[in-house]
Simulated scan of single mutants.
Amino acid sequence: MNVVIAGADESELADAIAAEGHDVTAIDVADGESLEAAGIGDADVYVLTEMAQATSIAVAKDLNRDVRVVVYAGGSLPEFATRQTDLMVDPALLDPDTVAEELA
């Protein structure tokens, strides 16, 4: 599975996903250019770790309408982004290893 993860990855979710055998590309800032460079067009899953970058969900879906969107961050997701998000997980509730296992 190809995974693009965007945002500050303080919980090291990218490492946990890679340890499950998935191809992971991590980017700090998710805009159209960086998402394309990261391979969002071929990605199976887009993981966002910062609510401040919620607009990137719409950009990712524009570039790949079939990508599954997972938000792994605390706080509230803006309403426009909730309609395009497949799964929201609060890091306080599930650790990175559990989330990585469930992505498959």
Rank of each mutant, 00 (worst) to 15 (best):
V89Y: 00
A18Y: 00
R83L: 14
I27A: 09
K61A: 11
N2L: 03
D9N: 04
A58V: 09
A37P: 01
Y46A: 04
E50Q: 14
R83C: 09
Q53N: 13
V99H: 03
L93V: 12
L63S: 07
G7W: 11
A16K: 00
M1W: 02
P78L: 08
A54Q: 08
I27S: 05
A81Y: 07
E79K: 15
M88K: 11
A54D: 10
L103N: 01
N64S: 05
D66A: 14
T49I: 06
T98A: 10
V3C: 10
Q84R: 15
E33M: 11
N2Q: 10
S76C: 11
R83H: 13
E50V: 14
F80M: 14
M88C: 11
D9Q: 00
A16S: 10
D9V: 12
A73I: 01
V71R: 12
D90R: 10
M88P: 01
Y72G: 02
L63C: 02
G41V: 09
D90T: 11
A37L: 04
A52Q: 15
S56V: 15
V69W: 01
D42A: 11
T98G: 05
Y46R: 00
V4M: 00
A73T: 01
D86K: 02
D9L: 12
V3K: 07
A8G: 12
A58G: 15
T98E: 03
V4L: 01
E50P: 06
G7F: 13
A60D: 01
V70C: 04
T25E: 07
A43L: 08
D62K: 14
S11G: 07
D15V: 05
A38L: 01
M51A: 15
D95F: 08
V71H: 10
A43W: 00
V67S: 04
Q84I: 10
Q84K: 14
V47W: 04
D97L: 09
A58C: 12
E101G: 12
D95Y: 08
V47S: 05
V70A: 04
D86H: 03
D90W: 08
Y46P: 06
A6F: 03
P96Y: 02
Y46G: 04
I5Q: 07
A92T: 12
P96D: 07
V71W: 00
L63W: 00
S34T: 01
T49V: 09
A38Q: 04
L77C: 13
T25A: 13
E20L: 02
I27C: 08
S11D: 13
A19D: 07
V89E: 05
I40M: 04
G32P: 10
I40R: 03
I17P: 06
V4K: 06
D31I: 13
G74F: 11
G32A: 11
E50C: 11
D28Y: 13
H22W: 07
D31E: 09
D90Q: 09
Q84C: 10
V89M: 07
I5P: 06
S34M: 06
A92M: 13
L87W: 14
A73K: 06
D97C: 08
H22L: 00
V29G: 02
V99I: 13
V71A: 05
L63Q: 14
L35F: 05
V89A: 05
D66Q: 10
D9C: 09
E36Q: 15
E10R: 15
D28V: 12
V69E: 01
D9S: 07
D9I: 14
